[in-house]
Amino acid sequence: MSRRITQGVARPAPVSILVNDRAIEAYEGESILTALIAAGVLTMSRDSFGRLRTPFCNMGVCFDCLIEVEEGANVSSRVRACLTPVRADMRVVVPEVK
């Protein structure tokens, strides 16, 4: 399992974000990608061939971590999870993987 380093690191109080309909704990400021991987989510979208996309570069180049994010009512956008900080109460839509 992945894990956050805690020794010598002070984080703000955790917030909750929704991944599909599951609430996970995350920290404001960390990247959405970090929060997702910490929650065991490695696949960010399904392309038009049905292939699951999984991040490679963690620096905004591969676009494999493009995810759908909803904030507030009806405001949905697709952003690179590696470059986008977590904000409380956001909802992230990822493919359900059996």
């Binding site: 399992m1 992945s2 894990r3 956050r4 380093i5 690191v9 960390e30 990247s31 970090t34 991987i37 910490a38 991040p55 490679f56 570069c57 963690n58 620096m59 590696c82």
Partner: peptide
Amino acid sequence: GAIQGFVKSQQFVPGD
């Protein structure tokens, strides 16, 4: 480098 980015910036070990 992606793995390193998680460790350096996110203070996060992205696997086991």
